[in-house]
Write a protein that binds this DNA or RNA. Structure first.
Lengths: 212, 212
DNA sequence: TAGATTGTTAATCGATTAACAATC
DNA sequence: TAGATTGTTAATCGATTAACAATC
């Protein structure tokens, strides 16, 4: 058990380190990587790499570096990437379909194959009952039952902005712990629920600022 | 001209303030909003709102607040949202199509309607020459000519991870100033080019860490 | 005028970087 | 052993918050 709270930004970098180690897995034999090299590939300083890793344990050997395969396993464990994660999609519009296919198509052995889309919700009566990518579309009010029977870890929200807060409330109510929201609205949820955002318009607007 | 460099995170919040003011535009008559209220809606402290705005000028009135319409116009100007922004899509896969439709469907008056998709690139010979959403698909090597003739502000990259760096190099070469990359790889570009990332797998992995 | 709220400065908080003893 | 690199502490840097005089 760690003594101190680890900042979000550290977790984000751990994911990036894991990604680099996954790419290195192809190389054969035991293989050591230094904070120097890992940092270079990740675009951060060696000191930062060491500090990030040190908040979870002592994974390296002085004078040598980190054994790549071992470090990968440690990171997978820290980041809960060593077990399947159940994902629900809310809103089977174009984006919802694209994401579902993207995650399902994930080549075996890739990092995304731990995510399993086990539920799809949409309020459109014409979509309810249909099957998409092997999953039957349910109405949002079927969430609590689904949650109870099979459990869900993360909800991906690709619903219209106007519906987002309502759907978030539903998820919170049902006990989902993490939301990935694609709608361009801030969601208000209790502290024990994590919300991340993916907001294309916001990114484009931010980029616009830096133009000439 | 501002004296000091404004941090990225401030710009990101300005976009959020603008979004809130856009929503308020519907309300009629002159309308003042305080840093208190704007902060509440944006999920930040009033002091932060005032400090963010103050890095670009004095837009408020003591004892009253900020005139909503005026502040909106100021922010639109600061963020370059008062002129059309030309966007290119690289990679017309499922995600590329979804994003193109999303940006084109933007209801008039919404924040996204300043972004115009004026070019689509894909290396698949079967797609080249086809028209999607009124734009003809070109091969990537047509970029320099396109750039010269019409100009492009931002490139959205929805290409496979393996092609991302190559496409980024191409964009840099052609003089594009900002990239929004959906491929799960870090891009190495010169300092004068901005890269933002939208990385669903990374977000899901980060969220996984916080589960139970 | 009295009440409210800005713009700004100083204080606090937190994250990054530098440096180095420990040690493989 | 000599060279290299870790884990960790102290120094630096930067962003957020608190506080308040100015003023509408």
């Amino acid at each position: 058990m760690r003594r101190f709270r680890v900042p979000d930004v550290v977790i984000r970098r751990l994911v990036i380190y894991l990604r680099i180690l996954n790419e290195m897995e192809l190389e054969t034999g035991p293989h050591y990587i230094s904070s120097q090299e890992l940092g270079q590939r990740a675009g951060v300083s060696p000191a930062q790499v060491r500090k990030d890793l040190a908040s979870f344990g002592e994974f390296g050997k002085q004078g040598v570096g980190y054994e790549a395969h071992n470090l990968r396993e440690e990171l997978r464990s820290i980041l809960n990437q060593d077990r399947p994660i159940k994902v629900a999609i809310f809103g089977l519009g174009e984006l919802g379909r694209a994401l579902t296919r993207y995650l399902n198509r994930c080549p075996h052995g890739e990092e995304c194959d731990v995510f399993h889309i086990t539920a799809i919700f949409d309020s459109d009566p014409r979509k309810i009952g249909q099957t998409f990518e092997g999953v039957q579309v349910s109405p949002p009010d079927a969430l609590p039952a689904k949650m109870e029977r099979e459990g869900l870890d993360i909800a991906i929200m690709t619903v219209p902005a106007s519906a987002a807060q309502m759907v978030a409330d539903l998820c919170v109510q049902a006990g989902i712990q993490a939301l990935l929201n694609f709608a361009p609205v801030k969601l208000f949820v209790p502290d024990n629920v994590r919300v991340h955002y993916s907001d294309v318009t916001l990114e484009l607007q931010q980029l616009s600022f830096y133009l000439s």
